[in-house]
């Protein structure tokens, strides 16, 4: 594991309109090769935190640095380029485009980045092969099971070889068996050196694939431990 911090959040606060802070004065860092699970109940601010790291949202105060790049001050175009080059995202509901085939979904970030076509296609096929869904390359997402869709989403997230894989409740919409598949996949990816930041309230997921756990309560870090802490132990 590399000691250099890949993600660095400093005194980050996010407030929506006049409401309470969704994220309140949060500071933490993630080193390269780590798999960090952010745990917390619904509304605790964990998804907001992920959005801030992904450059999908901007903090009200504080700084977010990823791979040496200040994400909090990026323009929309800058944030888009950042997302396409340095991160890959996996969502609870997959967010695959229903009118594109699995292969086209996977290729999309590479195509938007203007990567060479042949290279992109080779990489996409490799990923689909590795993730065990190569036979579905030309199928539309609607025909796939939940687990297969999430694998396709992971393939899409990895197509541009991102430094960081972000996952927002990646097993939240899956049955037990599919959830297990995805857990194993993320674990394997991390063991292969992929830095992973995942947001979940699935303790099993965190236990199986996270090397570190950050618990968020009411927008603040309640605990930050190397091992998974059972529910309630931090309070």
């Amino acid at each position: 594991m590399d000691d250099a911090a890949l993600i660095e959040l400093h005194q980050v606060t996010k407030t929506y309109q006049d409401g309470p802070s969704a994220v309140d004065e949060v500071s933490f860092s993630v080193r390269r090769g780590e798999a960090v699970a952010i745990l917390g109940p619904s509304g605790s601010g964990k998804s907001t935190l992920l959005n801030l790291v992904a450059g999908l949202d901007r903090p009200t105060r504080g700084t977010v640095t990823v791979d040496g790049l200040r994400v909090d001050g990026l323009s929309e175009a800058g944030a888009a380029k950042y997302r396409r080059a340095r991160i890959g995202m996996v969502f609870q509901f997959f967010n695959l485009l229903d009118d594109l085939t699995v292969l086209d979904n996977v290729l999309l970030p590479a195509q938007l980045a203007g990567l060479p076509r042949a290279l992109s296609r080779t990489r996409a096929h490799q990923l689909l092969e590795t993730l065990g869904i190569a036979e579905h390359a030309h199928a539309y997402p609607g025909r796939l099971s939940g687990g297969e869709r999430q694998r396709a989403a992971v393939a899409r997230a990895l197509i541009n070889r991102p430094a960081l894989l972000l996952a927002d409740e990646p097993t939240g919409a899956l049955d037990t068996a599919s959830g297990r598949e995805v857990r194993d996949l993320l674990t394997q990816l991390n063991q292969d050196g992929q830095t992973v930041l995942l947001v979940t309230h699935d303790l099993a997921l965190a236990q199986s694939c996270a090397t570190r756990t950050v618990r968020i309560v009411d927008g603040r870090i309640a605990s930050d431990t190397a091992a998974v802490v059972p529910e309630g132990a931090a309070r």
Binding site: A54, A77, A80, R83, R84, F91, N95, P109, L112, A113
Partner: peptide
């Protein structure tokens, strides 16, 4: 609009 969000999340710039 949701698809647009997905496009953007995987790196589509405003110009694109």
């Amino acid at each position: 609009v949701h698809d647009l969000g997905v496009y953007k999340s995987v790196g589509m710039t405003p110009r694109q």
